[in-house]
Computed example of a mutant assay.
Amino acid sequence: MSGVLSSVDARTQLVGQNRLELLLFSLGGRQRFAINVFKVQEVMSLPPLTEIPDRHELVVGVTHLRGQTIPVIDLRRAIKMGTTVIDENSTIIVTEYNMTVQAFLVAGVERIVNMNWNEILPPPVGAGRAHYLTAISRMDDRIVEIIDVEKVLAEITPYNPEISDAWIDDDLVELIKGKQILIADDSQVALNQVTGVLVKLGIDVVATHNGLEAYQVLEAWKAEGKDIANDVLMLITDAEMPEMDGYMLTTEIRKDPELKGMFIVLHTSLSGSFNKAMVEKVGCDGFLSKFQPEKLTREVQRIIRKKLGIEEKEENSDAEL
């Protein structure tokens, strides 16, 4: 499975089809777990590890891979299941999230499966490890639990939600007071972080947990005659979500005569090179990596100005997507 994500072209074939590939693995015991293959760079047997002083308790050590020093995180311990027993089957899954590379120690990797997002469901409310899950599915009459890796990483490296007043355009905030932004994200951690930034801009946030929920909100607004074009500044959507992913959500919006002009920002922890290709393919107005409050603040304001036909301010003109 080495280099399963080496080709962007191969990955883009699933986009717009509401499909995904999951890497199935074990943390010890019979329970199956999974993460989206889009996040995976490589799978390999556990290499020699170097212990580092004052490391986080979930980091079992670091390894050196292709010129990079990569932390190795005990995923079983991270989701409160106890410490992983290391043996000849121990494996690491090397991943990229939010432009950082890290590896997760697992008991063993099973296989990659291709699924439809409508087969992926939100975890049941109040179910034990649901606190660390973004979704569940069923395969061969067994439950597959899809881990909220963003929550795991946020606990290891806490996110700083603070934004400087210097990043905020007070004139724009006054102009958009009371306007809404619709968000779709299956990670509560991500929803909380984005909401925290938008509220400081004086924006009313409507939060949903997947693309289907977001689309249903838009349909309900249409039915009640809401002036979506004027009242809703934009949609900020995650890429991978249960039931309907962000790419399919964007595709459906672009096909709807009443919604096709909506401004859409893809906000995801997937790699930048991949998502820039996806922005063009599905018709988003921008792409932003997750958990960067300054860039989120600047990009939201840039797109609002674009929507309202306001000239870009010089201090924000170099903001990156």
Results as ranks from 00 to 15, higher is better:
R32E: 12
G29W: 11
D285Y: 08
T69R: 05
V279G: 05
M278P: 10
V94Y: 00
L5V: 11
L201K: 04
F38S: 06
E21T: 09
Q193R: 09
E240I: 02
R30V: 14
G196N: 13
A220I: 07
M115P: 03
A277T: 11
T83W: 09
E96P: 09
P48K: 00
A223M: 07
H131W: 10
F33Q: 03
L23F: 03
I73R: 05
K255S: 10
T95A: 11
T134F: 08
A127W: 13
D54V: 14
G29K: 10
P242R: 01
L191T: 10
L133D: 09
K295N: 10
V189S: 06
R129D: 15
M44A: 06
T251R: 12
S6E: 15
T100I: 15
V149Q: 04
K281R: 13
A103W: 01
M241Q: 02
N114D: 14
E315M: 10
L182H: 03
E145R: 12
Y97C: 14
D165T: 12
L182Y: 08
I264W: 00
L296N: 02
N160F: 10
K255Y: 05
A166D: 15
P293A: 04
A166E: 15
E150R: 01
N118P: 07
I86P: 09
L182K: 00
E280T: 15
T95I: 12
V205P: 10
T297R: 02
A135R: 02
E42T: 15
M99E: 15
G82N: 08
M1P: 09
I146W: 01
D169E: 11
D171W: 07
E320K: 04
K200T: 08
V113R: 07
I92W: 05
D285V: 03
E42S: 11
N114H: 14
E96T: 11
L46S: 02
R32V: 12
S6L: 14
D148Q: 05
E174Q: 13
I92A: 01
N114F: 11
T237M: 06
F291W: 06
V60H: 08
A78H: 06
S45F: 08
M262A: 02
S187V: 00
I228H: 00
T95P: 04
G178A: 03
M262I: 11
E320G: 03
T84G: 03
V279K: 11
N98V: 05
Q41W: 13
E21Q: 12
F38H: 07
R305E: 09
T157A: 12
L58M: 09
Q41H: 15
A190C: 10
A107I: 10
Q41E: 14
V152Q: 06
K226T: 11
T84V: 05
H56F: 05
E155K: 11
V43S: 06
A103M: 04
A166V: 13
I236Y: 02
L235Y: 03
E88R: 10
M81F: 09
